[in-house]
Design a protein around this nucleic acid. Structure first.
Lengths: 185, 185
DNA sequence: TAACTTCTTGACCATGCCATCAAGTAACGT
DNA sequence: ACGTTACTTGATGGCATGGTCAAGAAGTTA
């Protein structure tokens, strides 16, 4: 690999991290190209396809955030609070970071790195759901599929309703959480 | 107006009702044209613009459904059930009819007929919210804006998550409704 | 420095949509 | 039956995007 090629690959990676971070994984590649100071053709030549580029950066782009959530949530006491903290932090991440949202929404179902990241978060959440249900603190009729949908739904909303303030978005999350709790007997 | 023109206007209206009903108000006009057996140019000539066509059919397309909800809900007993029935029926309508969903999502904020329809449903819901809050049966911190968002959110979801079955969609609505109820003291 | 290979470029094609308009067609009145 | 006028057509331009490739630029090596 020639020196300029190596330089460009690195530049494109960095530009992609930057652009995808703020705009999500579906940002036009021309913007990445512009940010990297190369032409769109170079990106295709180096990474094969849009997916190729995403695969090359998504881990670095998102893994940290998901890990941070898992760690923070592990430290919370009590199955209900833990489950709710997981959802809350995930939902806020979806609002704050379009790229992470794209991962959680499975925007590219074919991509292996994306799937892997998604599964990591999903399995963790599923465990928390089971534990909370076993403790009788959340509704027993919530399925793992429902959990996935709760996250997918929020992703769709975060994407589409982007004029709402973070505070309003946050406040409304409480309504949803409240609806998942077990009914008092 | 010549006979063929009159015939075409009627044909286009009917085709639009048909096509918009199943595909929503953002369906490409070519499909309406094809269904009406005319060319796209004719639609523009007769209705001026896409919005013009929508304005000409949206009342007939959607008003009936919204009215049906209002009437059915008026007959329900109790402020909580009434409020929940309104949301439930509205949410299901959003799932079942893309065109009604487009109205409730304010897809064309400029269109007067659309706005009028939207307001009709919205005011009714707001009244139910007030009554339910006055009776202490739903959370007091829900604002009229929140109500609008609850509907907008569902619209976005109905659009984007179209592979889920109606039954699953319906079942998940219960979670949301539950979260809106007043906390028992 | 000159030949050779790698690399980059940006014009290009394709898709899908909205919207327009000159030119052709068909209804209507006499 | 014919001229007039209303009407329709579909080819056309515009825009935004994904993706490709021949030709030219630039680095590498002897």
């Amino acid at each position: 690999m020639r020196a300029d090629a190596r330089r460009n690959v690195e530049g494109i990676r960095r530009a992609a991290l930057d652009v995808f971070r703020t705009g999500g994984l579906t940002t036009p590649l021309d913007e990445v190209a512009k940010a990297a100071g190369v032409s769109k053709g170079t990106i295709y030549h180096r990474f094969g396809s849009r997916t190729g580029l995403i695969d090359a950066v998504v881990e670095e782009l998102v893994a940290e955030r998901l890990t941070a959530i898992i760690e923070a949530v592990e430290a919370v006491d009590g199955p209900l609070l833990r489950f709710e903290e997981y959802l809350l932090r995930t939902w806020l991440l979806q609002f704050d970071e379009p790229a992470a949202n794209d991962v959680l929404m499975r925007v590219l179902p074919e991509s292996e790195p994306l799937t892997s990241l998604f599964e990591r978060s999903c399995h963790f959440g599923r465990r928390l759901l089971y534990e909370a249900q076993a403790a009788g603190v959340v509704r027993a009729d919530i399925t793992p599929d429902d959990l996935a949908y709760l996250i997918l739904e929020r992703g769709v909303i975060a994407r589409a309703c982007d004029q709402q303030t973070r505070d309003d978005y946050r406040r409304r999350l409480d309504f949803v959480l409240r609806g998942l709790r077990a009914v008092r007997t």
